[in-house]
Deep mutational scan, measured.
Amino acid sequence: EDDHHMEFCRVCKDGGELLCCDTCPSSYHIHCLNPPLPEIPNGEWLCPRCTCP
């Protein structure tokens, strides 16, 4: 699979289990988001950068 997502968290710059945005290459740990997510959501997810007006 050709995955163009970042291999590190945009916030802390560390790797591991990352949540990938469905519209851009950004990846995040769920605990690095503000507010943090309790678990990885099902379905499409947009990062804070893509949901800002």
Results as ranks from 00 to 15, higher is better:
1 E>F: 05
1 E>I: 06
1 E>L: 06
1 E>N: 15
1 E>A: 03
2 D>H: 11
2 D>N: 14
2 D>I: 15
2 D>F: 15
3 D>A: 06
3 D>I: 15
3 D>F: 15
3 D>E: 07
4 H>R: 11
4 H>T: 12
5 H>K: 15
5 H>D: 15
5 H>N: 12
6 M>Q: 03
6 M>D: 13
6 M>P: 02
6 M>K: 15
6 M>T: 13
7 E>P: 04
7 E>T: 02
7 E>V: 07
7 E>W: 03
7 E>I: 04
7 E>F: 12
8 F>E: 15
8 F>C: 11
8 F>S: 09
8 F>N: 11
9 C>W: 01
9 C>A: 01
9 C>P: 01
9 C>M: 00
9 C>L: 01
9 C>N: 02
10 R>K: 15
10 R>Y: 12
10 R>Q: 14
10 R>N: 12
10 R>T: 13
10 R>F: 14
11 V>S: 08
11 V>I: 10
11 V>K: 12
11 V>P: 01
12 C>E: 09
12 C>Y: 03
12 C>F: 00
12 C>V: 02
12 C>S: 00
13 K>M: 07
13 K>L: 08
13 K>F: 06
13 K>V: 05
13 K>R: 10
14 D>A: 10
14 D>Q: 15
14 D>M: 08
14 D>N: 07
14 D>K: 14
14 D>H: 07
15 G>S: 10
15 G>A: 08
15 G>E: 14
15 G>T: 12
16 G>R: 04
16 G>D: 06
16 G>P: 00
16 G>Y: 01
16 G>C: 00
16 G>K: 08
17 E>C: 04
17 E>S: 07
17 E>H: 00
18 L>M: 13
18 L>I: 05
18 L>E: 01
18 L>Y: 01
18 L>F: 03
18 L>R: 04
19 L>M: 13
19 L>H: 07
19 L>Q: 08
19 L>V: 11
19 L>E: 02
19 L>C: 10
20 C>R: 15
20 C>V: 11
20 C>Y: 14
20 C>D: 12
21 C>I: 01
21 C>E: 06
21 C>L: 00
21 C>Y: 01
21 C>K: 01
21 C>H: 01
22 D>R: 11
22 D>M: 06
22 D>C: 08
22 D>K: 15
22 D>A: 13
22 D>W: 06
22 D>N: 10
22 D>H: 12
23 T>V: 10
23 T>E: 13
23 T>Y: 10
23 T>L: 07
24 C>T: 01
24 C>V: 02
24 C>M: 00
24 C>P: 01
24 C>Y: 02
25 P>D: 07
25 P>Y: 06
26 S>C: 11
26 S>R: 12
26 S>F: 11
26 S>I: 10
26 S>M: 15
26 S>N: 10
26 S>L: 10
26 S>P: 02
27 S>D: 02
27 S>N: 12
27 S>I: 04
27 S>M: 08
27 S>A: 14
27 S>K: 10
27 S>H: 10
28 Y>T: 03
28 Y>A: 03
28 Y>M: 02
28 Y>I: 04
28 Y>F: 13
28 Y>K: 01
28 Y>W: 06
29 H>Y: 01
29 H>E: 01
29 H>S: 02
30 I>L: 12
31 H>I: 06
31 H>M: 10
31 H>F: 13
31 H>W: 05
31 H>R: 11
31 H>E: 11
32 C>Q: 05
32 C>G: 01
32 C>M: 00
32 C>A: 00
33 L>Q: 03
33 L>G: 03
33 L>C: 04
33 L>M: 05
33 L>W: 00
34 N>Y: 06
34 N>T: 12
34 N>H: 06
34 N>G: 05
34 N>M: 08
34 N>Q: 08
35 P>V: 04
35 P>F: 04
35 P>M: 05
35 P>L: 04
35 P>I: 04
36 P>A: 11
36 P>K: 14
36 P>V: 06
36 P>W: 03
36 P>Q: 12
37 L>S: 07
37 L>T: 06
37 L>V: 10
37 L>F: 06
38 P>C: 07
38 P>D: 11
38 P>S: 10
38 P>L: 09
39 E>V: 12
39 E>S: 13
39 E>Y: 07
39 E>R: 10
39 E>K: 15
39 E>D: 05
40 I>Q: 12
40 I>F: 11
40 I>V: 14
40 I>A: 14
41 P>Y: 04
41 P>D: 05
42 N>M: 08
42 N>K: 14
42 N>Y: 07
43 G>V: 10
43 G>E: 10
43 G>Q: 11
43 G>M: 07
43 G>C: 08
43 G>K: 13
44 E>S: 12
44 E>C: 06
44 E>M: 10
44 E>V: 08
45 W>G: 04
45 W>F: 10
45 W>Q: 03
45 W>T: 04
45 W>L: 03
45 W>Y: 05
46 L>S: 11
46 L>E: 09
46 L>F: 13
46 L>D: 06
47 C>I: 02
47 C>H: 05
48 P>C: 01
48 P>S: 06
48 P>Q: 05
49 R>Q: 13
49 R>A: 13
49 R>M: 09
49 R>P: 07
49 R>F: 10
49 R>T: 13
50 C>F: 00
50 C>S: 02
50 C>A: 00
50 C>N: 04
50 C>M: 00
51 T>Q: 11
51 T>P: 13
51 T>D: 15
51 T>I: 11
51 T>H: 07
52 C>P: 02
52 C>H: 14
52 C>K: 15
52 C>E: 15
52 C>M: 15
52 C>Y: 12
53 P>T: 03
